[in-house]
Design a binder for these strands. Structure first.
Length: 267
DNA sequence: CTATGATGGAAAC
DNA sequence: TTTCCCTCATAGC
């Protein structure tokens, strides 16, 4: 679930249902009991999303709640009052109409403002943010000897891209993941950025990753596209363009998928 | 019932 | 570069 689109969509949904309201906070599982006690009864002022990170701001509490879902983290929406907690619930936030339950996050902490600043400082431009510094992205890539497949997974280079979008973007641009960043020219890198803006916005809207050309699959509304039709290469065995076999290999700790004939490797 | 994997990343070597 | 942590749906016995 969680690449950048999921996080920004959550920020939107959480703000809509909990923003401006007094929240009952608790930690049924117990691992965030102290923090939840600090937040209980406070008003949620705003939520900021950057890459895969969420920062919740509260009235009368200078420390933001920092949440990072990691690989397993999930928010589940329930009506208020919610049913008995099931499973490991790190944090339950009960609003007037809607409750959000958080399970499995990598991070769920109240951070001193300085610690929050540190996290912001190490995040690269986020294609879903208006304040994104595109030139910084282009620079980092075109000056690097690291492979583009590794660079796209580096949150300091571009914040919010994960393993699915990485493979899909490189397929769409016809670039082999092993190509060093500096073998790409600035226009090509800008094109990757533009694609990421377009695709992540679409991901927020549909609340899922759908990279295929809408004209190709006849997209009408969210959820209308069958799972098997949403992607070009990720976890696929054959190429939709040339029908050849899709290759996969490990890069930045995860498997990347590519078509060796449609995606040119440069050196 | 147990085993496995998954759209992530930090800490340990 | 490897290890470890987070949770839970699903596959397989």
């Amino acid at each position: 679930m969680p690449e950048g689109h999921t996080i920004h969509r959550l920020a939107r949904d959480l703000t809509k249902h909990l923003g401006g309201h007094q929240i009952q906070a608790s930690s049924p599982q117990g691992r965030f009991s102290e923090g939840a006690a600090q937040l209980d009864g406070r008003t949620l002022e705003s939520i900021d999303a950057w890459g895969k990170h969420l920062f919740f701001e509260w009235s009368g509490e200078p420390r933001p709640l920092h949440v990072h879902l990691g690989l397993f983290g999930r928010f589940r929406r329930k009506p208020s009052p919610p049913p008995e907690p099931r499973g490991a619930l790190r944090l339950r936030m009960i609003g007037p109409e809607v409750t959000f339950d958080l399970s499995g996050p990598t991070a769920c902490d109240l951070l001193e403002p300085a610690a929050a600043d540190k996290i912001y400082a190490r995040l690269g431009p986020d294609p879903l943010r208006d304040d994104a510094d595109v030139d910084r992205f282009v620079d980092r890539i075109t000056k690097s000897r690291a492979a583009i497949g590794t660079l796209l997974m580096n949150q300091q280079v571009i914040a919010g891209i994960g393993n699915v979008y990485r493979s899909e973007f490189l397929f769409l641009r016809g670039i082999h993941p092993r190509s060093p960043g500096r073998t790409l020219d600035a226009d090509e890198v800008r094109a990757i950025w533009d694609l990421s803006v377009e695709q992540l916005q679409r991901g927020v809207k549909l609340n899922r990753i759908v990279t295929r050309d809408p004209a190709e699959v006849g997209e009408r509304a969210a959820g209308r596209i069958k799972k098997a039709d949403r992607l070009y290469v990720y976890k696929r065995r054959t190429c939709r363009t040339c029908d050849g076999p899709i290759d996969w290999f490990e890069m930045a700790n995860r498997n990347v998928y590519a078509c060796p004939s449609c995606q040119v490797e440069r050196s």
